[in-house]
Design a protein around this nucleic acid. Structure first.
Lengths: 347, 347
DNA sequence: CAAAAGTTTGGGAGCGCTTCCACTAGACGC
DNA sequence: GCGTCTAGTGGAAGCGCTCCCAAACTTTTG
């Protein structure tokens, strides 16, 4: 401890190592390591010596070396198998990322954004995840054919899906809103309101959220003895909502209700209806899905189904971290959030 | 080579290691490593033996071990010192991320999203970056007091700023649009159009983009001998644009021109003007800044200054990767993009 | 045909960290 | 007074990889 030695970092070889900290603190590398990581089984004396050394040296542990032995990286991936331009315009992703970062911020875990463009790069994503660059993965918006659920469960990487996966739903955990119930209820709202000719602008048919919402609409329609034949698909963007609504109104000019699978698409629908001179809700009642800000800003404001995206993302992230912590084990769990109707002016 | 040995991965100890690949391929670990990394100095025979072993074993290199020795992590951070709710609503960030991911996708580099909330977590961000978790950093929207430029240049981590940093601009590289020139020109447009009473809704005064645009407006005004006294600050959000415009119009009801420092704020301004019954552009001409989609969707559509955000982010990322590659050296470089006026209906 | 030059190869030394384990001191009980 | 605990410590063994270097082999050349 009283040993005289040079205190300066060894020959400017870059950042100081644990070895140097130990030398400066006058303890062994093992003790220094313990002191830095929580300080179990370390005397107060040694602890403060190490603390001081860390501070004077400006020591920061080398993450690669650490994770080589701990087998942890303290980072998780958010996987978004979606063309990048869609990701960054949809408030759904914005909300998701917000929820994730909020939870991650509580602990010292970082977020790796994995944008898997369609096709080829799924393989790359998979390779990345297999390589254990991250401790876990949150898959956000996946499509039928990426088979991500199976692949991830094969790899054995802790993961949670945001939204029910197509297949392998029994092998992975997921958090989802009850899409079917939500769309059913909001459709029933229109029916109760006296609408009899209700069409739907559904989402892309390779996504479960879209399929489930479509199913909800169908259930309500058939239960009420109404024809469930006016269906058009979009891809959740406003643009696609415009096209789908145009097509729908052309084929079924008599529609008096429109159940749209996302607010963004509903905003497009409202624009088309305005062009067509139909009054909303007088001539045509319109409902959306999501309630992430857009619904409040349309004219008229949108009656919709609220999907608490931020909260869901937080839950999903917590779930993921739990699974990461208790390593393996813990069988898949699903968390289904009840949807909430939000009545505004469009229906 | 003809040695008989068990080919199956050693005792289910998790993922196969390079050692196992080497054993299966009948070569040394060194040769296997070479074969896997580019295959310089490897005979075709050995190469294919290794390739086969990799494939049958499903080998994926352990990134921690690799980066422990290479001192590369093959990932870069995008640092956003901004409250998370702003990040995900502003099309500016969306565009930036898009540019970044596009370039990163070309190589096998991952993106770590570092959202530094104001205050305390800047320290954490800095610690993370100091720890060399990433090979470089792209700082996107920084504020005056985070002093990120100095800190990063101290750390010695390759970094590029999106937008001129407040201080330390001579020590770090950055890519920026010529904010001053852009705002000056668009102001001159109003002046040429015969407007004489032109106010401005500026951005937050702790951001260089805002300060530079304000300066551009001032230059044009004073050069034309007009009073540059109608100034109000917002924070680039639509909401703040509403407040600022309201305050501005109250104090200066005679304004016939409005130079707004972002399209989002300009959208807010348009709403206020509509409320106030002023016709745009007849009574008041309005111009924005950014042109990232919002400007096309307002009523009337917005005359604005185009900032090619995606392209800029791409350039910035390329610049960053260059700096990462040639390690250290290469003195700071700045890339100033000329702005482009986009004429629409609002002025 | 030997020497020189080039090409492949494997041994081995780390990269910086955590953690097992054996060991030393005091604290404590009888 | 002497075992018996317990808290604290350091030595050393890896984690899985890259890369230097010298050895072994192949080709070229005089």
């Amino acid at each position: 401890m009283a040993r005289v030695n040079s205190v300066r970092p060894q020959s400017g070889s870059g950042s100081p190592t644990l070895d140097e900290v130990a030398r400066v603190a006058g303890v062994s590398r093992a003790t220094a390591s313990r002191a830095i990581n929580g300080g179990q089984r370390v005397s107060p004396r040694a602890q403060s010596a190490v603390d001081l050394a860390v501070r004077t040296l400006g020591y920061v542990p080398n993450p690669a070396a650490r994770s080589l032995v701990t087998r942890r990286t303290d980072s998780i991936a958010v996987v978004v198998p979606e063309p990048d331009d869609r990701v960054f315009t949809d408030p759904f992703f914005a909300g998701t990322l917000r929820g994730v970062t909020r939870v991650l911020g509580e602990r010292d875990i970082q977020l790796v954004l994995l944008l898997a463009r369609p096709g080829a790069s799924t393989a790359r994503t998979l390779r990345y995840l297999t390589g254990r660059h991250v401790d876990g993965a949150l898959v956000v918006s996946h499509h039928r054919d990426d088979r991500l659920a199976e692949h991830l469960s094969d790899i054995g990487l802790p993961c949670v899906f945001g939204g029910r996966p197509w297949t392998g739903g029994d092998r992975v955990a997921y958090v989802d809103v009850d899409n079917t119930a939500g769309e059913r209820e909001v459709t029933e709202l229109l029916i109760t309101g006296g609408r009899t000719r209700i069409g739907t602008v559904a989402g892309p048919s390779d996504m479960t959220a879209a399929a489930d919402r479509l199913a909800g609409w169908r259930q309500a329609m058939t239960a009420a003895g109404l024809a469930a034949d006016a269906v058009e698909h979009g891809d959740f963007t406003e643009e696609s909502g415009v096209h789908a609504t145009r097509a729908l109104m052309e084929r079924h000019p008599d529609l008096d209700g429109l159940v749209v699978a996302s607010d963004l698409m509903a905003a497009g629908a409202l624009r088309v209806l305005a062009e067509l001179g139909r009054r909303v809700p007088d001539d045509v009642a319109v409902v959306g899905f999501d309630d992430l800000g857009v619904a409040e800003r349309t004219t008229p404001t949108l009656t919709t189904v609220r999907q608490p995206v931020v909260a869901m993302a937080e839950r999903a992230t917590r779930l993921l971290l739990e699974r990461v912590d208790q390593a393996e084990g813990s069988h898949p769990m699903r968390l289904i959030i009840p949807p909430a109707l939000v009545r505004r002016d469009s229906a």
